[in-house]
Nucleic acid binder design. Structure first.
Length: 260
DNA sequence: ATGCCGACAGGATGTCGA
């Protein structure tokens, strides 16, 4: 089964690009982030016409996550537990059944956290702590599972073009990186790093300053696999070519082949 | 050192992203 994640930076502004990629690539499951629309304005019909079921946890203007799947979506659960009063739509779980088994997929849009030294950065760290708590719970299910999305953390220095340029950015703070590691250290494996050792492989290039043309990117869109999913992992790759298409998102899809 | 670009809401330009 091909499962993918993609921060689309507005699903309405990106509809032609997203449907073109779905037709071209044919993923079975796609986690979307930054859909930037409410549940009732999500362009459901465009995806259903391509054979996808939709689970949506939307929000007006900001954030918003969704999951598309050719198979039925079961156990659909929005919202990361904890953080009462947190209305940001950043988390959506669903279970998909393949020919060889079941996988739980989670669409994740972690907070950006800039600028550092503000309540936005504190919110980011607290949100990642809540994610760790839920990630620990999910491991007790002992099933194939994938935390997929825009984690808004640059894991290592070789996941960006110029570490010095990110030194004062929330995405590369030691606290942010430690928070991601604490999730991984529970037993969640970075699928891309399980399959690829090459440095400087990116999933995001800023629209500004010719970042794409100069390959000044960062790798912040991740797939974290439970041990049971990792055992079934065949490959993981970045759909870099999509950044060069018309009207691109600033992020590109990341996908895995998993035997379920 | 700052803006660069792009989406959104709303109807000009500020907020947000990363």
């Amino acid at each position: 089964m091909k499962i993918a994640t993609w921060n689309v930076n507005s699903v309405k502004a990106r509809l032609e690009t997203v449907t073109a990629w779905l037709k071209d690539f044919g993923p079975d499951v796609v986690c979307l982030q930054e859909i930037k629309c409410t549940d009732d304005t999500f362009p459901r019909a465009a995806f259903e016409d391509l054979g996808y079921n939709c689970a949506v946890h939307g929000q007006k203007t900001y954030n918003g996550v969704a999951i598309l799947s050719t198979r039925p979506l079961e156990d659909v659960t929005p919202r990361l537990p904890g953080g009462d009063g947190d209305e940001h739509a950043r988390y959506l779980e669903a279970v998909v059944t393949g020919d060889k088994g079941v996988i739980r997929v989670v669409s994740i849009y972690a907070p950006n956290g800039n600028p550092i030294g503000t309540e936005k950065f504190e919110y980011k760290l607290k949100w990642l702590e809540r994610l760790r708590d839920r990630a620990a719970e999910l491991l007790t299910f002992e099933e194939p599972a994938a935390l997929m999305g825009d984690f808004n953390v640059i894991p290592e220095s070789d996941d960006c073009h110029d570490p010095a340029a990110w030194m004062n950015d929330a995405l590369f703070q030691p606290e942010s990186r430690a928070a991601l590691r604490r999730v991984e250290n529970l037993g969640w494996q970075d699928a891309f790093r399980a399959c690829n050792v090459q440095p400087n492989k990116y999933t995001f290039w800023d629209y500004q300053a010719g970042a794409w043309q100069k390959d000044h990117g960062i790798r912040i869109d991740l797939v974290l696999l439970s041990p049971q999913a990792l055992d079934r992992l065949k490959t993981c790759a970045i759909e870099k070519r999509v950044r060069g298409w018309d009207k691109p998102s600033d992020h590109v899809p990341v996908w895995c082949e998993i035997e379920v």
